[in-house]
Design a protein around this nucleic acid. Structure first.
Lengths: 247, 247
DNA sequence: GCAAGTATTCAACGACCGTTGAGGAATAGT
DNA sequence: ACTATTCCTCAACGGTCGTTGAATACTTGC
């Protein structure tokens, strides 16, 4: 397949500077085809700038990729942290519900993917691919999201007294898997359901994910606390009663 | 970075024919770096054969990729279908529990990823990446897994009487997201939990995923049947009682 | 042992890859 | 108006990409 490349060079017609235009184009194209599936020429042509600008502004293709990943993470995490603290404060002197914690974790993401514009939509699709990549996840996800995740897990543990840390970590893993597949918006649920459900209908996900995950967490803890009792029966019963209380 | 490529050409030292060796090497490398992240030369060098063999045996790189994806899907799906039928038969004249259905869906996969050897482990990591890719999922996942998935969803609906199809589809989507992230084995839960949980500990996943997901399904149905009543109250109460029954 | 067919190697093709250095244009400070 | 700085263009580099056609090796059937 031979593709003729015509130079576009729209020469400052737009209002945005080249650096930002590159970030936007890279975000969109990386999200769809991954890091290796897109060349810097693809990106700069889509952005209407010269190839050399990638090296000039970012140092190289790899650094551009991490810059794309970083840009919106820095906007997102403070908001998510604030929402977690707000949920926590509102529940004082008790602890927040699992549903509220999960919502604080997911809502800022789902809301922006749904109504933040195409840039945000691409960004979350990119996060979905990165999160499922053995090559990229240990670097990018850990670096940009783990400090926040640790805070969420700490609050989850407060809301699940008597539940072992292992259950909470596995529950979080299932949550983030469900969430990132949603962001990928591959359209698979659309065809499976013959159009009854739409990948892009993130409001439906927002309604359902928190109840689903919260019930999952409770089931994990109930299972761990009923099987293999390592404590005397009386202590175990007290713990179960506490963690089984709903709402 | 300049990498010197030395020819290996181990010339039929192994027992496997070149076609199979290419499939094995491609599986391992595609799983880690994706379709575009690996060249056919990377693959053929790892397999110890000549570059031209890819075109000869498969027609091209793209066809090799789909062949890798197809090979184990064809082994997997009949077994999963048989397990679903077995679970269904064992529950007659009733319907199987959600836990048993989810296990029939996940166990053949988790078991092979855990103890099927490195080939299977790579394969599921590849599936994880494909499932989260807007470029590949609509083609490969739909083509090779959707017929099976439709059967599972049909049985899930039997086990969730009075629950709308939408809830079941969303519940399935969350399940498959949690499952595929598990297969990716990115090691993120390892660092998050300071080594308390291990990505590779699929037995732990097997114990927990079914209870988690089953509880999630029940929560979705309960939510749908309690909020926004479109039916008269009496009918609604009857449905809720049915779908809320546990175990 | 010979022929037919299959499997594999070899060398090379044009296209595209990421990156770079030299230089031009725009901008800001004085 | 001059200068320094930043932003951007142009042309080209060495390398790697996927693919191919011709030639060689191996296997099978007789």
């Amino acid at each position: 397949m031979v593709v003729v490349r015509r130079k576009i060079t729209r020469k400052r017609t737009g209002t945005k500077p080249g650096k930002e235009r590159i970030l936007d184009a890279a975000e969109r194209l990386f999200a769809r085809h991954g890091f290796y599936g897109i060349s810097v020429r693809d990106i700069t042509e889509a952005a209407g700038v010269d190839v050399a600008l990638v090296s000039y502004h970012f140092g190289g293709k790899r650094e551009l990729f991490t810059a794309v990943f970083q840009r919106r993470a820095e906007l997102l995490n403070p908001e998510r942290l604030a929402m977690l603290e707000e949920v926590r404060r509102a529940a004082l002197p008790g602890v927040p519900t699992l549903e509220d914690i999960v919502n604080a974790f997911t809502y800022p993401l789902l809301e922006r993917s749904a109504r933040g514009g195409p840039g945000w939509k691409s960004y979350f699709a990119l996060v979905a691919q990165v999160n499922n990549s053995p090559e990229w996840a240990p670097v990018l996800m850990t670096q940009h999201f783990d400090p926040l995740v640790e805070k969420f897990i700490a609050v989850l543990r407060e809301a699940l007294p008597g539940c072992s840390a292992r259950e909470v970590y596995w529950g979080y893993q299932f949550l983030t898997g469900a969430l990132t597949l949603t962001f990928a918006e591959t359209g698979r649920i659309d065809t499976l359901s013959s159009g009854l459900c739409k990948s892009s209908d993130l409001d439906s996900v927002h309604e359902r994910l928190a109840p689903y995950v919260a019930a999952g967490f409770r089931a994990l803890c109930a299972r761990a606390n009923s099987a293999e009792p390592a404590l005397p029966k009386s202590a175990r019963a007290a713990i179960s009663a506490k963690s089984a209380k709903r709402r």
